[in-house]
Design a binder for these strands. Structure first.
Length: 413
DNA sequence: CTTCCACGGGAACACTGGGGTG
DNA sequence: CACCCCAGTGTTCCCGTGGAAG
């Protein structure tokens, strides 16, 4: 690699000769649904107990599933759903399980449309009134006798845009003659039902299943299980799996994180041509995942948000440790003028700041400065150096590279 | 007790991309 | 074809409000 004698002809041979430590890398991706779910038999059983009435020809209760990210909610729901469909077929009871991710399908219209499309209805992307889509879906649904289970992942994403869909869906059974519907809502927001219409709340939450976070030991079991098929035998140093588990356990027991960590560790060790995955690789992986995430988030930010972030970064560089909204907004305005894009209102900019806060790029806390009013104090939670580098990759921000905010004349200490 | 600034909720609006109808 | 309807998104406008310094 660094002896400089590798010919172009040799590069692929060179890459192919590195020891491949993976047997099947896909197993470590979070999209992969394993057949065996360690430490989740209680939840599987609970869900199955509710849904079994479908096989008896009754409508199962609606279920609400709670749990933090990476606690296996989706995996369990999908797994049980698949089993139900299979068993239903065996017993001659037609049951359909529809899985919808409300993070992608996040409006009433889109939810109903994608449900209807499941029954081969042609619904345009947009244009129709919502109730027409609803009717269309209902008719398609009721065309034959069956049990339909709708799994709605991340339902909380749907609710803030109006919970009328949920209300309608919970009441749909009374409009149906042949088919029966039951709903499974999945959420990682424990306070989610607080904002729900009480009628929807009681109906959707007939049964509740809680998914507690995994502890380090359980995570270790999960990793061990997957590592068996993911890696070639004995390429992992013994400490690797416990370390991944420990790191992920700190992040509220996120199994997805643990798996990512293990996979990236493997990839890093592969790249460094090590025959084994070592502890050091896990540590590197931990850093890499975090920076990759930030770079990705910053890169895909809308221009306006980038500008807002940039103003904060610049103020920070000038040595202003507690940045207020007013200061940031001034810089933002100046920069907008320079590169000739529309200036948003301060109202909007506060929203953008809050969004950046949500994404974990900033930390904005409201503080009251008494006589001097109320403001948000902004602290960056990402390294300024690399952040501005990423920001300047945007061609529209390029010309701001030399821009220096005028040093603030502070009114107070 | 007053005063100040920006927070943040809500309404209203503009615009987009897609209907369906005459 | 023109025309109006619809959902969805991003934005502006208006305004009541928090809370500690003065």
């Amino acid at each position: 690699m660094d002896n400089g004698t590798i010919t172009i002809k040799g590069i692929f041979e060179d890459m192919l000769t590195i020891v491949n430590i993976f047997e099947n890398r896909e197993v470590l991706r979070s999209t992969y649904t394993p057949d065996y779910l360690p430490h989740r038999s209680d939840q599987v059983k609970a869900l199955a107990t509710v849904l079994v009435s479908a096989l008896r020809g009754e409508t199962p209760s609606n279920v609400l599933i709670y749990g933090k990210t990476g606690t296996g909610k989706t995996a369990v729901a999908k797994h049980v759903g698949k089993e139900l469909e299979r068993t239903g077929e065996l017993y001659g009871i037609p049951s359909v399980v529809i899985y919808i991710n409300c993070e992608v399908v996040d409006t009433q219209y889109r939810l109903l449309a994608s449900l209807a499309r499941h029954f081969d209805k042609d619904i345009p992307m947009t244009g129709w009134p919502t109730d027409q889509v609803y009717t269309e879906f209902k008719n398609a649904l009721d065309s034959e006798k069956r049990i339909v289970i709708i799994i709605m992942d991340e339902v909380d994403k749907l609710v803030d845009k109006g919970d009328d869909v949920l209300y309608n869906l919970t009441r749909i059974n009374s409009d149906l003659k042949k088919a029966k519907v039951s709903l499974i809502g999945i959420t990682n927001d424990l306070k989610f039902t607080e904002f729900l219409d009480p009628r929807v709340k009681s109906s959707l939450g007939e049964e509740e299943i809680i998914f507690p976070p995994y502890d380090a030991n359980q995570l270790r079991d999960i990793l061990q299980e997957r590592a068996k098929t993911a890696f070639k035998p004995s390429v992992l140093e013994e400490t690797v799996i416990p370390l991944c588990a420990a790191y992920a356990a700190q992040e509220h027991g996120d199994a997805r994180r643990a798996l990512d960590l293990l996979r990236v560790s493997g990839e890093l060790s592969e790249r460094s041509k090590s025959a084994k995955v070592l502890e050091i690789h896990v540590k590197q992986a931990q850093d890499k995942i975090e920076t990759d995430r930030i770079v990705e988030v910053v890169k895909t930010l809308p221009t306006q948000s980038k500008l807002v972030l940039l103003s904060a970064v610049m103020l920070n560089n000038v040595g202003d440790s507690n940045i207020t909204t007013g200061e940031a907004y001034n810089i933002y305005k100046q920069m907008c003028r320079i590169i000739g894009i529309d200036i948003l209102t301060q109202r909007r900019v506060t929203d953008l700041i809050s969004e950046l806060d949500m994404l974990g790029i900033l930390n904005a806390t409201v503080v009251s400065k008494g006589r001097y009013g109320r403001t948000k104090e902004i602290a960056l939670s990402v390294p300024t150096e690399s952040t501005s580098r990423v920001l300047f990759e945007d061609y529209r921000l390029k010309q701001l590279e030399g821009f220096k905010p005028p040093s603030q004349t502070k009114l107070y200490a």
